Simulated assay, not measured.
Amino acid sequence: MSARHILLWQDIRIMIVHKPEYFTGTDHLEITSEGSVPLPITETGYRSHFMPSGTLENQRDALAFVSEWLDEASQSKQWQKHLADTRQMSLF
């Protein structure tokens, strides 16, 4: 049975759909930002992610997993450049 979650990350509303056992031994996450806003894990605002079944059991849920993933990915030079570029107006 799939579970739907809403995450507000750095003022970006994100829909997360977790489908356990999407197929045998594999869970699926669908991550979609409202308005297709780019995220550190996807330039298009959409990410499909497969992982071994049970990855999200015990210690964390889909919200915590995606939030930690975004926090870690947001430290990349590429994402920092994206933020700087979107804050600064361009003449080109």
Rank of each mutant, 00 (worst) to 15 (best):
M1I: 03
M1F: 00
S2K: 07
A3E: 06
H5G: 00
H5L: 06
L8K: 05
W9R: 10
Q10E: 15
D11V: 03
D11G: 02
I12N: 14
I12P: 01
I12K: 11
R13E: 10
R13I: 13
I14N: 06
I14K: 10
M15E: 15
I16G: 09
I16Y: 09
I16V: 10
I16A: 13
V17H: 04
V17P: 00
P20M: 14
Y22F: 06
F23T: 01
T24W: 12
T24Q: 15
T24K: 15
T24Y: 09
T26D: 01
D27T: 07
D27M: 08
D27I: 04
H28C: 11
H28V: 00
H28G: 01
L29N: 04
L29M: 05
I31E: 05
T32N: 05
T32K: 06
T32M: 01
S33R: 05
S33N: 03
S33C: 14
G35L: 09
G35T: 09
S36Y: 14
P38K: 07
P38A: 05
L39A: 00
P40G: 07
P40L: 02
T42Q: 08
T44R: 04
T44W: 00
T44L: 08
G45V: 02
Y46E: 06
R47M: 06
R47Y: 06
R47V: 01
H49N: 06
H49G: 01
M51T: 04
M51L: 14
P52H: 08
P52Q: 14
S53C: 13
S53N: 13
G54I: 03
G54H: 07
T55N: 11
L56V: 10
E57P: 02
E57L: 03
N58A: 13
R60M: 09
D61S: 07
A62N: 02
A62G: 07
A62R: 02
L63F: 01
L63Y: 01
A64R: 09
A64C: 03
A64F: 08
A64N: 11
A64L: 08
V66T: 03
S67M: 06
W69C: 00
L70S: 04
E72I: 12
A73R: 11
A73F: 03
Q75N: 13
S76D: 13
K77H: 13
K77W: 11
K77C: 09
Q78R: 08
W79N: 11
K81H: 10
K81L: 15
K81M: 10
H82Y: 14
L83H: 08
L83F: 01
A84L: 15
A84D: 07
A84P: 13
D85P: 01
D85S: 12
R87F: 05
M89K: 09
L91R: 15
L91G: 14
L91K: 15
L91Q: 13
L91W: 15
F92V: 12
F92T: 13
